[in-house]
């Protein structure tokens, strides 16, 4: 091999390795700090699965026990969640590092979102104070008081923001609706705060035409919250009799979907190719909201000419009679 070719090959290899290392470094930045991952692994050894093992001093042997399903942490979901960089003991007492855990830890107070995010400049865009105000005025809070916490909907071990990050609206809808259905379609979860039975979702929405399409295409919160422009996602859940039932609030050019589900996409292609609210068209079609300006004008023009033609013809018939 010629010397300059050899040098070129070595130089290219070095550049490739350098770029590869830089990319790996960038990826690492997004992941959880290694020390937290290692520390969390100690907890996840037991809480990461449905069974755990420990040495029982009383019977002097290793014991395999079932983990309480409410205390199982899905590590895959956790390391994809908003709190993925955290160590377990950032939120839980460091005393959990001892096993068996002290019984008094069961009384450990749980943080609320505002304990960390209130007044936090890094979270300013989320406007947590306004979210809390919205939440306090919501039916969840007014009906159940302090018993209804943020964690009822936003499990800190799994919750991830979706409306801005997920590419597909269908995925955003599914993720969001599953949060509601987790209680409203599951009597065990529903009865954590009440003795009453959860209403049947399908029966309660039997007035809604094309029910399955609506459930797949829009979030529950589109109709069941009051739109608030100062926060990214509305949190004031309304009583059922105040939910949107007037179809034209979505099925019109001024569709409220553009202020809720599509608010993060409304700046792109609002009126692309003559279609009003075109952002919706990528994955759905809303009659009344997705009209085409050009087709509207063309239809008015054609109709106008037809009416004019008929009138002219009729007048000439009368004159020439």
């Amino acid at each position: 091999m010629k010397p300059f070719l050899k040098k070129g090959l070595i130089l290219s290899s070095i550049c490739f390795l350098l770029l590869y290392s830089l990319q790996s470094l960038c990826q690492y930045k997004d992941e959880a700090p290694k020390k937290n991952v290692l520390a969390n692994q100690e907890c996840l050894k037991c809480h990461g699965g449905h069974f755990y093992y420990y040495y029982n001093d009383w019977v002097e042997k290793d014991v395999r026990e079932r983990m309480n399903p409410h205390f199982v942490i899905d590590s895959t979901k956790f390391y994809k969640s908003n709190h993925k960089t955290f160590a377990c003991i950032d939120c839980h007492s460091y005393e959990y590092e001892d096993f068996p855990h002290s019984g008094s830890l069961r009384m450990e107070p749980i943080y609320s979102c505002l304990d960390c995010h209130g007044g936090d400049e890094n979270s300013a865009e989320f406007n947590f104070e306004q979210i809390e105000e919205n939440f306090i005025n919501s039916i969840h809070s007014s009906k159940h008081g302090d018993n209804f916490t943020c964690w009822m909907c936003h499990d800190p071990h799994t919750y991830e923001i979706s409306a801005r990050t997920k590419e597909s609206i269908i995925d955003v809808v599914e993720y969001s609706n599953n949060i509601c259905l987790n209680c409203h379609n599951n009597i065990e979860e529903f009865q954590i705060l009440t003795d009453s039975e959860n209403p049947n979702i399908l029966d309660a929405h039997d007035w809604l035409p094309n029910q399955s399409i609506h459930f797949r295409s829009v979030r529950c919160i589109e109709c069941h919250t009051e739109i608030n422009d100062s926060i990214l996602v509305a949190h004031k859940i309304l009583p059922k009799d105040q939910a949107v039932q007037n179809c034209v609030e979505c099925h019109s050019t001024n569709s409220l979907l553009m202020a809720s589900l599509y608010k993060f996409r409304r700046k792109e292609n609002r009126n692309a190719a003559g279609f009003i609210n075109a952002a919706i068209l990528k994955e759905a079609y809303v009659i009344g909201a997705n009209r085409n300006i050009y087709l509207n004008w063309a239809s008015i023009a054609i109709f106008g000419f037809v009416i004019l033609g008929i009138c002219t013809h009729a007048i000439l018939r009368i004159i020439k009679k």
Binding site: W207, P209, N246, C247, V248, E249, H251, S252, T253, N254, I287, G288
Partner: peptide, 11 residues
Amino acid sequence: SNPEYPFMRFD
């Protein structure tokens, strides 16, 4: 359909 000029209820 237009909420300001409800010619006929949408549903």
